[in-house]
Design a protein around this nucleic acid. Structure first.
Lengths: 208, 208, 208, 208
DNA sequence: AATGAATGAGACTTCATTCAT
DNA sequence: TATGAATGAAGTCTCATTCAT
């Protein structure tokens, strides 16, 4: 036990540094979610952390950089999940099903985690937007679907529209899923999957 | 000279008032389209009109109010179209088909009109976003679909997800439609409609 | 009398505008003189005017722009004086004598005028620097002298050093003149002139 | 290895202290030369040393204090030179000649030394200003001249102006000397000396 | 002593909004 | 009602300085 500690002898300094960096990231995630990315200012972020104004700039150079860090973080955590799905999926249907379920589960997790941290009072007219993190994960899923489609696994019609339609269903249903209590990822995923797969089938047949 | 004006039932004042109000609206539509709603400032709008800064506040209290006016305007212009579709549609399928086509045509129109007004030289990084008008019209369509669904015209599954799925397809495909040249509203509408209708059919059957 | 007024019917608006512009210029002249150009901030300038922070930017875009305006102002007022001296001067000696006297008189005037406006309390460690205005007028004189020298009116030695020497005497003596009470422009000018002219003569003879 | 250090009368601590103090001084000299005193920040100085920000304050309380130290250093190094000149000079003329030459040589040395240290690539707009050291040495020379003048060695006219004139020539010519390649201290000194001595002679005669 | 992150004052600037004309 | 300058809050960012380690 003590060995592990000895192997990574982090001083109090390093510790607070990591904590602060995380605090800024967390605050940004929250505020982006509440006010929307565009309406958020650097001040909003640091205000939430309780740190001094200048401290922000010890960690990030701008709001954009925080957003990028957030995106990277989300994508980095989701990427391995998606990768294993890509590898294991038996055919297109299975892939879509698994990918959307994984996406929704990640979404639910993320959402809960920053919902939990939000202060209870909600006096302001909030604009719940998509956080950079959610957007990044969404892009991962989208790219995977688009790749599958363009790879020829799925035949007919304009692949651009095809992907757009899948994306549209996945995103919109996902968003509504987050608004329900309790959040039911399985049901939502089942729904979206069915909609997409049948819809696509209809297209092929129509094209045939 | 002044006679003509004096004879007119609307005095010069009234006329100017209407003109200014419209000028602000037009300018706002353009700028929202070019910079995106969030990035647009009141200054951007009035600068475009050529009016004085203070004049803006004789007509609107804020950027938000202009956006609302713009939304209302869009909705007001689109409402009769949608109404006649609702009246004439023969069944659910026909309704979806017509509504989405009408929506896409409106979208294309709007989009073209502010694209046309843009100055040829593009020194700044433009962000072509959804204008408040587009958003409003979208909401109209969405509400119509939701209403149809909840009215029981369409049976199965969670109506919330159902609507979300339709909406997702319609919006996302619509957006991609605007990115293509030439803009083909019919093809896009046909695609989205097919996707939605087959998808829904699959859901009912799956539920049965 | 009233005609003149009718010919330039300045409203109260135009009036305050001119006043503000002038107030900023005056404040800048003072603060530059007291703190030195480099140590002066835009805030220092507007603080002195009593205007709001933003108002500064209605008139000038930066500290640099104020400095330029100040320089231009000084140079513009001094230029005609110098021009007539150039035209009328009988030979090199006369030119130097007249130019330096004119320069000193201008300096004394300027100095008095911004001294007069300075608040009496001088608690801070002041750094009396050259204002942009003084610098501009000085450059005018310098250019005139340099031109005369390079034109061949004056023969010997490195013209660069020659001019530098003249300049050095003129500037340094001028500065000391301003520190004395009463300010005696004639005596200072006589001194500097004698020093320069004899010094130069010595050089030619030495070269010969 | 450690023995040598242990044997040494100054411990490692002491040595580092001296080294750091010197490193800061050197860095400051460089940066003042490159950016100009006013534009230099404490951060600029410590960045150049490679030391930590806080370390600076173990040695100096502010940028001003470093400048003072630098001045003192310059003066301290120049003082003995000037002293011997004072002692050996045969009369006023000889004194002026020697003092100015010494001053110019010191100037050239300083200038070269920080020019040499500059990195070859010059991405930033450099401002080669007078360093605190140069200023200090200049003051030494000025004081010496003033003293000679007021001591009665040189009779006529306002001693204040007299000194100012000498100073003006010396400084201005010195500055131009540094701008030429190669730097010719002897020629510049000869010029300035001639100018001053003849000029002064003219004044006495004029006064006589 | 050395370190370097935290602090917070303060500089610069933009912008929504007001208000005298 | 139109005008457009004045206002001042607020955002961005830098920097001197402190202080826990």
């Amino acid at each position: 036990m003590s060995e592990a500690i000895l192997l990574s002898p982090v001083g109090k300094r390093e510790q607070t540094k990591v904590q602060n960096r995380q605090a800024i990231l967390d605050a940004a995630r929250e505020v982006f979610g509440e006010l929307g990315y565009d309406n958020t200012t650097v001040r909003d972020i640091i205000r939430r952390t309780g740190l001094a104004a200048g401290t922000f700039y010890n960690y990030y150079r701008s709001k954009e950089e925080v957003a990028t860090a957030l995106s990277d973080d989300g994508a980095r955590r989701f990427a391995p999940i998606l990768k294993s799905i890509r590898a294991q999926a038996k055919g297109w249907d299975d892939f879509v099903r698994s990918a959307i379920l994984a996406y929704y589960e990640f979404l639910a997790d993320e959402h809960e985690s920053w919902l939990a941290k939000r202060p209870p009072e909600e006096t302001q007219p909030h604009v719940y937007g998509e956080t950079p993190e959610m957007a990044a994960v969404f892009r991962e899923v989208r790219d995977a679907i688009v790749e599958r489609i363009t790879t020829g696994d799925r035949p007919p019609a304009d692949p651009d529209y095809l992907a757009a339609a899948c994306i549209g269903v996945a995103r919109e249903v996902g968003e509504h899923m987050l608004a329900k209590r309790p959040i039911e990822t399985k049901a939502a995923a089942a729904f979206a999957t069915a909609m997409i797969l049948t819809g696509l089938k209809g297209l092929s047949e129509g094209a045939a």
